[in-house]
Design a protein around this nucleic acid. Sequence first.
DNA 1: GCTAAGCATATAT
DNA 2: TTTGGATATATGCTTAGC
Length: 582
Amino acid sequence: MKEREVRRTWMHIDMDMFYAAVEIRDNPSLKKKPVAVGDNTMITTTNYIARKYGVKSAMPGFIGRKLCPHLVFIKPNYPKYRQASDQFKRILAIYDPKLESVGLDEANLDLTDYLVDNKMDNDLGKIFIAQKIREQIFMDMGMTASAGIACNKMLAKICSELNKPNGQTYMYNDEVEILKFMMDLPVRKIPGVGKVNEHILSGLNIYSCKDLVEKATEVYVTFTEYAFQFLVKSALGMARVMHEKEEGVVAQRSMGVSCTFRPIHRYNQFREKLFRLAAELESRAHQNKVMGKTLVLEFKSFKFETKIKSMTFPHYLYSQNQFKKYGILLLNQAWPIEAIRLMGLRLSNMRDRRKDKGVKVCPEVQINDADLIEPPGGPDGNQQETQDQGDGGNNQEEDKIVFSDTMHHPSNDQNNANLDDEGIEDPEIEQKHDEENMKHAKEKLFKQKYGPGEKKKKKIKGEKEILSENSRSIQSWNNVPRFHMDKIMGKSEKEKRQERVQKILKKQNQRGIESFMNESDKYLSKSDHFVKQFEELSKIKNKNDGINNCRQIRNKLKKKEERQQKDIDSGMFGVPKSFKPI
DNA sequence: GCTAAGCATATAT
DNA sequence: TTTGGATATATGCTTAGC
Ligand SMILES: Cc1cn([C@H]2C[C@H](O)[C@@H](COP(=O)(O)OP(=O)(O)OP(=O)(O)O)O2)c(=O)[nH]c1=O
Ligand SMILES: [Mg+2]
């Protein structure tokens, strides 16, 4: 394990109740009221008065209203938050032009250079600078921020939450201090350890970072090498101490749109949603002058199960016609699909349209027959238009595309003069590329339908093969030498690991999913009066409606539980880029 | 034996 | 008039291709 590096200084700064703060600044009469930014379906954030009632980010609005009847709802105004965010980041850039940030209201700064240049690289200097930055933000913006100062990003982030709102925390760059602090810290506070992994760890009786270090052996056999290293290093307070990229901003890697609606189930409805998303995606891709080679279509069923289809093309896509055409291929591939409540379309494998970068040559393709473009069973799959009166038939809700906070600004660059993107302006080249893309897609679909080529076909998966495959892979993915457990246990590492996780989860499940629920889940599952409300409704209004409503709610709760059970059954790691281990 | 595609899942704001 | 978002990036695993 690498030596601990404590000579650098990081500050994580995070605006307090950001969206709500912007709204309150612009309407001071809200100051003393409980405020939620969001709507009946979802709350993005709340002020600290509302939080006293347990109303928090990511809680459905109607739950918030039940927890706090006087809650004032404010409709989100993302462009406004974006503006405030720009101002926030302009202030910070003076101290570290390379600042890293996820989201609008937080940033991670490497202050080392600034401190050294100003001869302030000492405890007092660091505390003073953080204070000064926060004051400057307050003076310029009329809003408060909280900060954490420590020797690496992870510690700084954790510290920034300790004195919220309008406070700051300084962690001495001293190993003893750091360890003392970490040992008591719940594992969930490690950025990257979420609900699921907290749950798995608790199955090993690991709750604090101290437990994590002490039970490193159990962690080792339960998680992958990478996850193991991440967890233990994090628990010891170790993380990256240098910027990931030398030069400025890291390019965005994907761009997408999605929207939620009343469940739909007919092919034509799917297609219509897809087309709208395609149009919206085009406008965003154009604004940001990007194109991408991979198109991803995402569905969320009314049971909240997510499914995705994706395809990578030889040439870049950038227009809504392309998104529609190839999106339909993905839709057809997935068809038939049960009713969905969300559809999303995403472009990845992206490239800036302005830069001259390598253009991939289209591979030679031969297979071209078999018209696979139509969905199986005709344009409407196996759904019958006629017997559709049920519910989906007349959906007149305008699924507006919400302007998200993470969207790029429409770039300020002037014109398309210097676009160098495989000759998008040239219709002939464009057509050629489209043909090649389509050819490629058809070939893929063909293979999918009729299986891979003769050579590969014989490799019917024998389990032996899979095992050897796995034990090799673990090394190549993680690129870290690892002691081979399979030799001792007679099974592949992966199998052993997965069995172990399953066992833990099973044990946990016996304790009930209570421990896995968040505030609003608990409220929902416990609130008899929530269901009673609907029963009362049944007296006032049409009796059947009320009963149906009641059933719907119960079903929903049940599905939610099933879903959570599934979540529980599949723990994994997704370490945020900014907190990768050293 | 490496790399990338494709899909599912986790985490974050 | 109801009732659980939108976006981005990450890992893990399996399969396909050179
Ligand atoms: C957590 C979360 C935040 N957001 C938005 C709203 C928040 O104002 C903004 C910043 O997120 P946070 O910094 O997590 O929350 P906050 O700034 O509102 O409150 P505080 O930092 O004082 O605890 O991001 C969402 O839209 N959805 C979410 O699930
Ligand atoms: Mg904040």
